[in-house]
Amino acid sequence: MHRILEYRLNDPLNDFPAIYHFKDLDPMQIFCRRSCDYFVIEGSVYEVTSTALEQDRFVIYLNPDKEEQPFPSAVQDRPLGIEIRLYEEYKESPEFMYISCFDHVEVFSRLDSTFLTIRGKEYERISAEMDQDRRVYVLYVKETGE
């Protein structure tokens, strides 16, 4: 099983340059990261355009998202888990709750779900991101009314 993950800019004119590289990751952590729609690093937000499996590594291709910014008021230094935010277009999505997770299997089971039941209400997944700066997964949801 491959244990290398590389983030690359989706820039064919510059031969898809690598911007971040992980060695020896747990495969389930790689799958969690591949299920995210956005990646945050060094204060910049990138949108995931595609993923690939190469001979010796997994690759995630990114485009810079100039319209999005990391949340300046977001909590730092949390244990493994998922920050749940109620999706708000064009403004900061408020944090709804934080779900602490035992391992990346538990993280993946939530990130990869289209619908989640939280506090007795159903929510739909809008998008997910890996915020490398804060080392946290963020899941954006909206209430379905169910």
Rank of each mutant, 00 (worst) to 15 (best):
R110F: 07
Q132L: 00
I4Y: 15
V141A: 08
V105E: 04
R119S: 14
M1F: 14
E122P: 12
D24G: 08
S113P: 02
Y87W: 02
V136G: 03
E6A: 08
L53G: 12
F39H: 10
F102A: 15
Y61W: 05
I99F: 09
D112E: 13
I60D: 01
M97P: 09
D56H: 12
I41F: 01
Y61H: 10
E143M: 01
D24K: 12
E88G: 05
R85K: 02
E67A: 04
Q29I: 13
E67Q: 04
F39K: 11
E146H: 01
P12Y: 02
G120S: 03
E143A: 05
E92K: 15
E92Q: 15
E83K: 08
Q69D: 02
Q55M: 07
F39W: 07
Y137K: 00
Q55Y: 07
S35D: 04
E6F: 14
I4G: 06
R125K: 11
F31T: 03
K121R: 14
N14K: 15
F16P: 15
Y38I: 02
D26L: 02
P72S: 15
Q69A: 09
F102G: 15
I82W: 13
R134C: 01
V75H: 07
D37W: 00
F108N: 10
Q29F: 11
T51N: 11
A52D: 03
C36T: 13
Y87R: 00
E68L: 06
D11Q: 10
H104M: 15
V45S: 11
M130W: 12
H21M: 04
S50T: 09
H2G: 04
A74N: 11
F96N: 07
E92I: 14
D15F: 15
K121D: 08
E95C: 13
F96K: 11
I99R: 08
E68K: 14
Y98Q: 05
F22V: 01
E89V: 02
P27K: 00
G145S: 13
L86D: 00
N63W: 04
Y140L: 10
F71G: 12
I126V: 14
R135A: 07
D131Y: 03
Q69N: 06
P79T: 09
E95L: 07
D15R: 14
F31V: 04
G145Q: 09
Y38D: 00
R3F: 12
S127N: 14
S73K: 09
Q29C: 15
A128W: 00
P94F: 14
E106P: 05
M97E: 05
I4H: 12
T49P: 10
Y20L: 02
R34P: 14
F71Q: 09
